[in-house]
Amino acid sequence: MSLPAPPRLSACIITRNEADRIDACLDSLAFCDEIVVVDSGSTDGTRERAAAKGARVLERAFDGYRAQKDYAVRQARHDWVLCLDADERVTPALRTAIERARASGFAGAAGYRFARATEYFGAYLRHGNAYPDRVLRLFDRRRGGWRGDREIHEHVTVDGPVRTLAGDLEHHAYRSLADQLGRLERYARLMAEHMHARGRRARLANILLNPFWRFLRGYVLRLGFLDGWRGLVFAYVEANYVRQKFIKLWLLERGQRI
């Protein structure tokens, strides 16, 4: 009696101007049965590079990170999906863990999480708030997905057990410090607008104490200092993001432009 074939697997990625990073991402997904790329107006050849790698490329106007990723999942041909950003790569160890779970038919799980390791100025952060930073990215779309109404810091939820896989997802998040600062400023604005729309109010303590707590938790309590100067810079920039978020919310409450 032959064993049932393992479930087929779709990889889903959203992109915009990722020509310098998309090849490595797609190469790490070669074990998937299909790759779906949803692009939102790239002008640097991202779509062409993805198509050349065998991905099925779709175009859609961007209306939020969560909505874009949900759309990509809905376009997949298979129910088990693996979602990555273009700046992420499946390591050989993680691939082995995924293929092992797949060979078992993804038995007993609605989704899988795994650690994400962020590359920061030439080395991977291994402590602090940056690691292990476990993310749920492999799941049965019939039992979950990119739910909710928050378009920033979006995440997957599933109805059923979630298992943890060995191996890391590599995250090449920032091209430079300027790239990181610009991105976090944009995230702070989006989060402030999201909180303001839902009636959240900023207090002086949020502006003064929340950034301090974020730094203390990441740099001291979670041993971010063991990552050397990179850990210090990351913790400080992350704390500044929290400060920006609450300052922008404070201004929105007072009818000011941000």
Rank of each mutant, 00 (worst) to 15 (best):
E59V: 12
F114H: 04
R198H: 13
I22H: 12
S104N: 05
Y241P: 06
R175I: 01
G64F: 08
I98L: 04
E151Y: 04
L252H: 05
G128N: 05
E154W: 00
R74L: 15
Q256S: 10
A51T: 11
G128M: 04
W80L: 07
Q75T: 03
I152W: 03
R147K: 08
F246H: 13
F215I: 12
G148D: 05
L204N: 07
V57H: 03
R243P: 02
R143Q: 13
E18G: 09
T157L: 15
Q68E: 10
L251H: 08
V237N: 14
L58C: 13
V37I: 15
A197T: 05
F225M: 10
A103P: 06
L221N: 04
R16M: 07
N210S: 14
G231K: 08
A51H: 11
L165P: 01
R60F: 03
A76V: 03
E59A: 05
A173N: 09
A188Q: 01
Y131F: 13
R126L: 02
N240E: 15
R201K: 12
L249T: 05
Y65V: 12
L181W: 13
A5L: 14
A239Q: 01
A11I: 11
Q68L: 02
Y71D: 13
W80R: 09
S10C: 11
H78Q: 07
N210V: 14
G128D: 10
R142M: 01
C83T: 14
V81D: 11
